[in-house]
Design a protein around this nucleic acid. Structure first.
Lengths: 195, 195
DNA sequence: TTCGAGAGTGAAACACGTTTCACTTTCGCC
DNA sequence: GGCGAAAGTGAAACGTGTTTCACTCTCGAA
């Protein structure tokens, strides 16, 4: 059941936090989760699949938290920036884990594309809710407009790009936050001019 | 010498074109290049290192080509977009190879960080030259301003993220080009307002 | 209570990246 | 021509992701 699955993800996350992608050895994950290797592979098609699942589990939690206490801010730009600051801190607080997950996402392994798409959709929903603000309709009620989907998708890409840059030591955590909120500001200001 | 090194890279590229990252088996690369496995590892510290080296070799060629025939366009935005269109086509023309290389770059393997930085610098130079236009001073003559470096770095990051999205089947080639040139437009328009 | 399906198990085996090492070849320099 | 260093060789070995398989366990439906 879900129980075993969560135990496996817990073990994977904990190993990733300690030593990153390479430290997540499938045999070790299985041992730490008190589960057979075969079970692990019944649940997750590959190591990348497993790490992306861990990421999505976290995104679910984040989704819930954001629904309970939506980001404050007078303008869409402020609210979106506030969300990204929070999300960035959440990732970077566990640097090794973050790197491991980024590597899994960027691996391009085809079997995980579906899980990544789900994750993307989840984050897009959060972003759109932040755009609309606490008084706007929920995404699950009012489907996103084309404009909203585009902004959400591009912002996510920007964020991802910044995180990869951070992972490769090209930019700092501070710059990740700055660049992303900068992108949010100009994207939100910029897109309406186009369409 | 360089000769052997190039033979190895040729073999790697050819295998990557056929079947992507997984099809690049170090033993096969060595065999195809008529070289011992040990030689391959003397030249490249890992598979990722090798693929990033292949990417940089291609970037060198691109650099040369751009210097000979700089991108046309009246505005910086147009010229930069034109460059990214060309670069994107160049990558995506060989989809399997592109995916393999992206995976290597995103792997976050520390030993390749240096090579990636060199590659980044190379592309940044091309972007800055495109920003300045055919009549502006060459990057090798007039060092880039802070503004130019920032724009170049952010655009590159965004382009990379879009390619990863394409690699994961989240967006199409067309969208990569559109989103990147859109990002170029608003970044170039947006940044001066800040500083 | 029994039955069947699906989940879990554990051990072995395989594939492939990477390391190691003793040996040979190549090459610039005296 | 002879020498030493660097490059190249090839084969074996190791670690780890992944697969396989025969077996056992769990649990809900009949």
């Amino acid at each position: 059941m879900k129980d075993r699955q969560n135990k496996i993800l817990d073990a994977a996350v904990s190993l990733a936090e300690e030593g990153g992608f390479d430290n997540v050895r499938q045999r070790d994950v299985a041992a730490k989760a008190h589960v057979a290797l075969g079970t692990l592979y019944r649940r997750f098609r590959s190591k990348e699949d497993m790490l992306v699942a861990a990421l999505d589990r976290e995104a679910q939690a984040l989704e819930k938290r954001m629904r309970e206490t939506p980001p404050k801010g007078a303008t869409p730009g402020e609210r979106v920036s506030s969300f990204f600051r929070m999300a960035t801190r959440g990732m970077i607080r566990k640097p090794m884990y973050a790197r491991a997950v980024l590597r899994a996402v960027a691996s391009g392994v085809p079997e995980v594309a579906g899980k990544i798409a789900v994750y993307h959709g989840r984050i897009a929903g959060i972003i759109i809710d932040a755009l609309r603000g606490p008084d706007g309709p929920d995404v699950t009620v009012e489907p996103p407009s084309n404009y909203e989907s585009t902004v959400a998708a591009m912002l996510q890409q920007f964020w991802f790009a910044a995180l990869v840059g951070w992972s490769a030591s090209l930019i700092t955590e501070k710059q990740v936050a700055e660049q992303t909120s900068f992108a949010a500001t100009i994207l939100i200001r910029g897109i309406p001019l186009e369409g």
